[in-house]
Design a binder for these strands. Structure first.
Lengths: 214, 214
DNA sequence: ACCTGAACACCGTTCAAGT
DNA sequence: ACCTGAACACCGTTCAAGT
């Protein structure tokens, strides 16, 4: 039932990931937990569908030219894709946290992957390179999004009053720490896009289909 | 108590993250749950200390020259750091999953950061660049490590029997999907290292201290 | 002073009993 | 045929009662 998923997502957005229990959801629906099991096989099934509901939001607003336009088309495509995924997941940090329990394999996630892969292929990526690039960028976004938290971490003071003798390097960089999750995300993404550019310009010593000799 | 943490880590390694409950841990210690609360303020406290125990393993074996040696020193340092973190966390996938509940702020995590930051500074990184690079690489490793799972995902068949009409791009790349988590990790890491190289060679249109105009 | 059985308030899931 | 109260087997946490 769509209403159940809508209420579940609302519960998640308003009270966080730990609030999404079968009992609280049933109560929010003025029902009993047993009734939920007539619509979902298990809590994991429910969670998977809530997650896929969020992936459905990625269909809208491909977000266009958010950043400077002096770059190659494929680079903008990759950036837009990753940005958009991150922004949508960021609207539902509670749901993003649930990704650790259920990998996104629902229909909306499948559609999102299809659209992304099609864009990469159309942008001139060779097949194996397209698959690897999408997989890596998507996993990158998911890994960061999962770490989104409603409470804004208080690590500020963790570095402020640090023993300069025991932690000289950390102490020296205290004013630059902590780096916000968003800043880390955008910085790392730009690095990967730059790296992809270098790969496409000249495959270099690490061939595209075996970048890691490990 | 060190014995408690050792048994907790063993429980985690042998039976996964969901097996680390206060009751099962107490039972493995031939004790009661109430006794655990004389050593730990809460389950979260226990989990944080187990996680920090894993970070303690990062002290050993800096892993040296794992990869090709034709590159710059700072690049090898960054790669070794990320590889080593990933390998150690990969030895305890159950513990890595717990990172979603507790950010690594224990003493061993502090030491690991101090060592890493010192290496970056010694490798010629400017202060803010060092802070940002470490934060991003560490978060990158954590995001991937959290997604490590004991069970080897069975998404293979997800792409095998896919409707070619509805998912043409995905279908075309079915033989290259799914990409393993490890492959994604190493590929993305190399991209970031390449990107960092480009940044250091010429700061370019995105200055080092503001890579994202968002 | 130290320990712990038993309780409390939760949780996911199931099923017999109701309509 | 559909629904659900109540139970079962868990969970984190606390505390009175024991030693």
């Amino acid at each position: 039932m769509d209403r159940i998923l809508a209420v579940a997502l609302q519960l998640l957005d308003e009270h966080g990931a730990e609030a999404l229990t079968m009992r609280r959801l049933a109560e929010a629906l003025s029902s009993g937990t047993a009734t939920l099991y007539r619509h979902f096989a298990s809590r994991e099934d429910l969670v998977a569908q809530v997650v896929d509901q969020v992936f459905a939001e990625m269909r809208d607003e491909p977000s266009g030219e958010l950043l400077g336009g002096g770059e190659l088309r494929w680079q903008n495509a990759c950036r837009d894709m990753a940005h958009h995924m991150f922004v949508v997941l960021g609207r539902h940090p509670g749901a993003a946290r649930l990704l650790i329990d259920v990998p996104p394999t629902g229909p909306n996630a499948m559609n999102q992957r299809e659209r992304s892969l099609a864009i990469l292929l159309a942008s001139g990526f060779e097949p194996r390179m397209a698959a690897r690039t999408y997989a890596t960028l998507a996993r990158y976004v998911l890994g960061f999004a999962m770490q989104l938290t409603s409470a804004p971490g208080e690590e500020q003071h963790l570095f402020a009053g640090l023993d300069a003798a025991r932690f000289p390097a950390t102490h020296a960089l205290a004013s630059a720490l902590p780096v916000s999750l968003e800043e880390e995300f955008f910085f790392g993404l730009e690095l990967m896009l730059k790296g992809l550019g270098a790969l496409r310009a000249r495959p270099g010593p690490s061939p595209p289909d075996d970048p890691s000799p490990l």
